[in-house]
């Protein structure tokens, strides 16, 4: 594999500054400066706080990624950076840095769609993964089901009609006082809880692959206020497990709708919500029951990282693509 191209990947679309070196589809280094602590006190990502943290971290982190990969920057075959979608002020930092670095090193530059990065992430853990596949992408910023027909050929089958799944976790965890980010907090609190303690509604919009999570929030808030007043509120672990179950149910149902509808027998996932242990277990159960091959990446490859950007870069480089020096970020970039 030493002949495979080595690509530096830079990801700054939201609240993680992440840089990685990938050779072919093998991860040589994958480092990250998480801003979770900086945003936790605000209960969500603050764009200006995110952008400030990126510009402070990007240089040192790039050097660390190269050092951990045992690589000199002169030996890179390309530099890839997230172009969008994401927070404009945050994207600007990694994109400007990557573009300038590529120019100065006289190496190709590739602006990468963050969502395409997520589609490539499972490939880094699992050489068996590839098209055709159905991919569930769910995080604080997006929730969608993508039909990976071929590399570079993506059809978004469905997406959320209101809140993203991760947003629902964040809002509900904040409401329950469990902390931020909400997904890991609810995952942690739900341990030992009964997922059937409270049957919160599962919103299943008519369109078979679309999600809706705003109704769940209203329903949980109403339920908690009513039962707290009456002194009949179930313990937090039961509440957390029940909320988690409602979100997982919807994601699993819609994802397998897509699997059955397309007849594709491979399933993968990406985005921070796919780090949720209950969702992973439910997807695994259901895939096993239906005989569908499941390619869930490790938790580190589900959340935002530089390696997935580099992996998409490896692919784009192989096609002979180059992103022009005059390119700008696109905060509302859409897959496909």
């Amino acid at each position: 594999m030493t002949d495979a191209p080595a690509v530096l990947g830079i990801e700054t679309s939201c609240d993680e500054t992440a840089v990685a070196v990938v050779r072919g589809y093998r991860v040589l280094s994958n480092v990250l400066a998480s801003q979770v602590d900086a945003h936790a006190r605000f209960g969500g990502v603050v764009p200006e706080v995110a952008a400030r943290a990126h510009v402070e971290a990007i240089r040192a982190l790039t050097h660390r990624a190269l050092a951990e990969a045992g690589m000199h920057q002169m030996d890179l075959d390309a530099i890839a950076a997230t172009r969008g979608p994401g927070l404009a002020g945050a994207l600007m930092v990694g994109f400007s840095y990557g573009k300038a670095l590529a120019w100065a090193l006289d190496t190709p530059f590739l602006g990468i769609d963050h969502m395409e990065g997520h589609l490539f992430a499972p490939r880094l853990d699992d050489p068996e993964y590839g098209p055709p596949a159905i991919v569930l992408l769910a995080s604080g910023g997006h929730s969608q089901i993508v039909h990976l027909k071929d590399w570079g050929e993506y059809e978004t089958l469905g997406s959320t009609i209101d809140d993203a799944a991760g947003e629902a976790f964040d809002k509900l965890a904040r409401f329950l006082g469990l902390g931020y980010p909400g997904g890991p907090a609810i995952d942690r609190e739900s341990e030992g809880g009964d997922p059937d303690a409270v049957r919160f509604p599962r919103a299943l919009p008519d369109r078979p692959f679309d999600f809706s999570f705003s109704g769940l929030k209203t329903s949980v808030v109403t339920y908690v206020r009513k039962h707290h007043a009456a002194g009949t509120l179930p313990p937090i672990p039961d509440l957390a497990a029940s909320i988690q179950e409602a979100i997982a149910d919807v994601l699993v149902a819609k994802t397998f709708n897509a699997v059955e509808e397309t007849g594709v027998r491979a399933l993968a996932g990406g985005g921070g919500v796919l780090a949720n242990r209950r969702l992973r277990a439910r997807l695994a159960e259901e895939a096993d029951r239906r005989g569908v091959a499941l390619h869930l990446p490790s938790v580190a490859m589900c959340t935002d990282n530089g390696a997935m950007v580099a992996a998409a870069g490896v692919y784009r480089l192989g096609l002979g693509e180059r992103t022009a020096p005059s390119a700008d970020i696109d905060s509302s970039l859409r897959l496909g």
């Binding site: 510009v55 990007i58 240089r59 050097h63 002020g89 600007m92 930092v93 400007s96 573009k99 300038a100």
Partner: peptide
């Protein structure tokens, strides 16, 4: 301008670091 400053500094950091 915050965004402009960050675009400039990121560009400068990358160039300086590269050479």
């Amino acid at each position: 301008l915050f965004g402009g400053i960050r675009a400039g500094l990121s560009t400068a950091q990358a160039l300086a670091g590269a050479v």
